[in-house]
């Protein structure tokens, strides 16, 4: 039924250049992502952009040195848990604002004094919300990417297993 096809190998034939450049760049890319998340309320960036950049650092590691290397750093179970934790953190932060009179869901319950404007610790709950969103977006995108790339291997495994099963049934009957 299925036509035989070549499986893309897991980054094994990536040259020395790609691997070396990845080793140098993965740190700065991660740092840039974390910077975007933390300073999202002062400079351009924010949870979404930072999360995507962090995820792309792990995607670069996956592409250059294989899936095993990146899954050791950031396994699928951890990614799915962090995905849920980020969303729950966001919800809890919104819910915390409803505690007292005159406040509402997602009200900013930490006031920023005039002197603290344009510094890192300003904007009330916004930096925390940015961190929650960053965790959420990074882990969701990395999880989706890992699932999509791991599928090639799964396909091959499944075909092997199904062939073996078919053989057994034939030999049984």
């Amino acid at each position: 039924m299925n036509t035989p096809r070549k499986l893309p190998d897991e980054g094994l034939d990536m040259g020395v250049t790609v691997k070396t450049v990845t080793r140098w760049l993965k740190g700065p890319i991660l740092l840039f992502g974390i910077y975007l998340v933390l300073y999202g309320h002062i400079t351009p960036g924010g949870g979404f952009g930072g999360g995507v950049v962090i995820a792309s650092a792990f995607i670069l590691i996956t592409l250059a040195s294989g899936e095993r290397a990146s899954l050791q750093l950031f396994s699928k179970g951890v990614a799915s848990r962090l995905d849920s934790i980020g969303l729950l953190m966001f919800l809890v932060l919104g819910w915390l604002g409803t505690g007292w009179a005159g406040s509402y869901f997602f009200s900013n319950f930490i006031n920023t004094p005039e002197a603290a404007q344009f510094t890192l610790l300003s904007g009330g709950i916004m930096p925390i919300m940015n961190i929650a969103l960053g965790i959420k977006v990074a882990s969701a995108i990395f999880l989706v990417f890992t699932l999509l790339t791991a599928f090639h291997i799964v396909e091959q495994e499944l075909e092997d297993r199904l062939c073996a099963e078919a053989h057994q049934q034939e030999s049984n009957s």
Binding site: G40, H41, I42, T43, P44, G45, G46, G47, F90, L91, G94, F105, F106, N108, N111, T112, A116, Q117, F118, S122, G123, G124, I125, M126, M129, N130, L133
Partner: peptide, 21 residues
């Protein structure tokens, strides 16, 4: 009102946080 100079983030996380949720 929010203390964040980046107004896109302010809209995203304060004025319209429901949308972000």
């Amino acid at each position: 009102t929010t203390g964040a100079p980046n107004l896109v983030t302010a809209v995203l996380l304060d004025f319209r946080a429901w949308d972000t949720l």
